[in-house]
Write a protein that binds this DNA or RNA. Structure first.
Lengths: 330, 330
DNA sequence: TTGAAAGCGCTAACAG
DNA sequence: CTGTTAGCGCTTTCAA
């Protein structure tokens, strides 16, 4: 069996409490005793039990980030922002996928007290579960919805305004037949981006289909396919507003293959300003927002659960490149 | 304070042991009692303490994946493979970044017993730490090095052979002046890919610089920059073998900007077969391997610590596309 | 089928 | 400065 604190105490010839103090750098312990303890611990290859400490201290000093998919360029910066702040509080971060539904690790960790707080984004975890487990000693920050609870806070991107800005930009450049390339209909970001699209169209009295005609699932491939489908139809838009960059890039690929020039014949604008969007040809005009900041702010919210604003909305910024024509450079 | 098992017992009017059995679906408990207990637990919004259970059971039923950066297209599939297998054993997976060095969560989790086993890849965690913490009840699988221990197993990609195949392919297509676009010099994958490059060159009596002249850090940007630098020099290669796809894609971008046609003037081959490599123009010839399988096999190793082979090497496969000319289609 | 009780490894209050 | 000890919340053996 692995060595415990008792073994260390025995070898060092001191009491367990002394070992605990020594190993936790308590100032109470003399240098000499500390050295003795450290030596004993090393000789036994002692590793403290996290479980025992967590149980005693009634906290894990760990916060959990729950996502559906851990891959994708999007999350990498988000995680950096979170990690930075979590570390500054001397806490640990674990990332966990909610893939697997009710039986996923994420669900278990959320229900049992594995972490001291949670940040949740883009997962099928139900509102009711979140509301149920959130509490005074278990704050939750959600990045993809708004929830009414004293213990759940929301940090959101201003999707509606960002979309509005993007579509207005297209309209100002003279585009009239602008199509929305939608992501999954049930996600709040997609809905809000659609709303922004509609507001811009309405304000300029431009018509658009009452139903969504181009739909993907946020991957490059799905954007490509949706665009292909559109091209096979009779109506040709003069601009496409994609709900995210991956799909926009897929759409551009489909347009290129059909020998339609972007932006001359069809302008394309995306959303998210992922790294890749400045590299594709033509480089992608898109709606930018700081994922690093999103993560950092979300984490701050977790630690400072001041109950003032239940929900924070971060601004977006139109990033003008080549895919819409007009003034943009690379 | 949050409700404990005692509170549930009190409300349900039974003993704590009965609550424990009931909630863990022990067959010993009558349906009626179970219902009573479940109702009580729900009314208290009872959430069991993971820490207490872990302490008692002397395990966390959780395995940890330790990576440096959690982003990047590469890891997403790896994680899927791991997750699948972990879930099949009814275990949990947490992913944790080693960013932050000695004080990172990863180091802490590894030293203290937060998880029951670990998979480690692409991180600056030292060999000695790994060897120290690995043990009979703490198996470790490393994906980026070979370590000599009964409790540490390696699962590796056959980088050397893959690189050899790629470079041989270039040579067969008539390329002679083939440059290696290196990643960080100290990573074992990069070293082995370099070895494969040299073996192929040597076998065909082709000369190459004794030192690495093109070096990046595995990002697209660094590949772009290294290629730019090369182009500024006097010598022009007729082919580039990049240590990974991101850098290869960056190199292609630099070549395009310099109006050098790929593959006609310069052939480019990458390594990893990331998703993107089939989309860039020209599509990238590369060395493929299954990251999903890498993850799945690594995880199997963790659970079945049969001490036969300490190290497993997975094969690679040359994926021929357009960036080298020759026969490849998209 | 249920209850009583020991104890997992650690921290921290208290006593010395 | 160091030791004794209670107890964190749970599982599980043993007894009823």
């Amino acid at each position: 069996m692995a060595a415990t604190i008792k073994d260390v105490a025995r070898i060092a010839g001191v009491a367990v409490s002394t070992v605990s103090y020594a190993l936790n750098n308590s100032p109470k312990i003399s240098e000499e005793t500390r050295r003795k303890v450290v030596r004993a611990a090393e000789s036994l290859n002692y590793r403290p039990s996290n479980a025992a400490r967590n149980l005693k201290k009634q906290k894990s000093e760990t916060i959990g980030l729950f996502l559906y998919s851990l891959g994708g360029p999007f999350y990498s910066q988000l995680i950096e922002g979170i990690q930075e702040v979590v570390a500054s509080y001397n806490y640990n971060l674990i990332v966990c996928s909610t893939f697997g539904g009710e039986n996923s690790s994420a669900h278990r960790f959320l229900r049992e007290k594995f972490v001291d707080g949670a940040i949740i984004m883009g997962t099928p975890i139900s509102d009711s579960l979140i509301l149920q487990v959130a509490g005074k000693d278990f704050p939750i920050v959600v990045l993809d919805r708004e929830l009414n609870s004293d213990y759940v806070r929301s940090v959101l991107i201003d999707d509606e305004q960002g979309a509005y800005d993007a579509v207005t930009h297209l309209i100002k450049l003279g585009r009239r037949k602008i199509e929305f390339l939608s992501g999954p209909l049930f996600t709040i970001d997609n809905i809000n981006r659609y709303e922004g699209y509609k507001r811009a169209m309405d304000e300029h009295n431009l018509p658009y289909s009452p139903e969504i005609v181009m739909q993907g699932n946020c991957t490059e491939t799905s954007g490509y396919q949706a665009m292909k489908l559109m091209l096979a139809g009779s109506q040709m838009p003069d601009a496409v507003f994609a709900a995210n960059d991956e799909m926009a890039i897929g759409a551009i690929r489909a347009l290129n293959e059909a020998n339609l020039s972007v932006p001359e014949q069809v302008a394309v604008v995306g959303f998210d300003n992922i790294h890749q969007s400045s590299y594709v040809r033509p480089s992608l005009t898109t709606v930018g927002h700081s994922r690093y900041e999103l993560g950092a702010i979300a984490t701050q919210c977790l630690f400072n659960s001041s109950p003032k604003d239940n929900s924070i909305v971060l601004p977006t910024e139109l990033v003008i490149r080549q895919s819409c024509g007009g003034m943009g450079a690379s």
